[in-house]
């Protein structure tokens, strides 16, 4: 048995030892935690910062985006000069409708793939028979198409409204050229060109000849008639 005084010294000695050990352990834990945090920040957080920003931007208008069109911005130009734009925020639905409509025209065209060759021939015939210098474009061109082609499906006829004037239009050289540019937020574009009754998908390099009805619909959609007036 040790003396009480001796035991007391031993108690203090052990206490100091244990306190030192605790401090060491605490410091070690701190060092571990700090290095772990640094590693985490360097390895996980920093690489994710870029995508996180993108996500944040996308998420900020996520609700709108879910119902938003693929192309949110439309620019309509008449022979190079822009006459209408559909703003991406206020008129997204209109932009979507416009895009859907234009693309829809091509889809309809594809349904008649069997007659594609005939249509192209018609267009060629039509182009070769074009007479230059006509101003009254729409009706005249329609009339010509009716006169020159007999395919029936894609072409159209002016019928009673036809003036009988042989002046036609529809060739890219003569007709007023309209450009419709659909722009995505990310920057991707879809570009269409309307020249007379010929609609070209410049992105996919496709061409269709529109019927009178389709042409009218397209013009109404993009407000071309109003512009003319």
């Amino acid at each position: 048995m040790r003396e009480l005084e001796e035991c007391k010294k031993e108690v203090f000695r052990r206490s100091n030892e244990r306190i030192k050990m605790r401090r060491k352990k605490r410091q070690r834990a701190m060092v571990c935690c700090t290095s772990l945090c640094v590693l985490l920040v360097a390895g996980v957080v920093i690489p994710r910062l870029g995508p996180v920003d993108e996500l944040f931007i996308n998420r900020s208008d996520g609700a709108e985006k879910s119902a938003a069109p693929a192309y949110a911005y439309v620019k309509c130009a008449k022979e190079g000069s822009v006459f209408q734009t559909l703003d991406r925020i206020t008129e997204k639905e209109a932009a979507k409708d416009s895009y859907d409509m234009v693309v829809g025209l091509f889809v309809i065209e594809e349904e008649y793939t069997a007659k594609d060759d005939a249509v192209e021939d018609t267009a060629k015939d039509y182009q070769s028979g074009v007479s230059e210098g006509t101003e009254d474009t729409d009706r005249d061109t329609a009339g010509t198409v009716a006169k020159d082609t007999t395919t029936g499906k894609i072409n159209y006829q002016m019928g009673e409204n036809a003036t009988g004037d042989d002046a036609t239009y529809g060739s890219t050289e003569q007709a007023t050229i309209y450009e419709f540019v659909f722009q995505m937020e990310a920057g991707k574009e879809a570009e269409f060109r309307l020249s007379g009754n010929e609609l070209t998908d410049r992105t996919n390099d496709r061409k269709i000849i529109l019927t009178e009805e389709q042409l009218q619909m397209l013009k109404t959609q993009f407000g071309i008639e109003e512009e003319k007036e």
């Binding site: 035991c7 108690v11 605790r22």
Partner: peptide, 18 residues
Amino acid sequence: DVHAAEDIAIDALSDLIV
């Protein structure tokens, strides 16, 4: 074991300080 007991008692008391 008296010695072990003493040791344990010292540890218990040092707990009061630590």
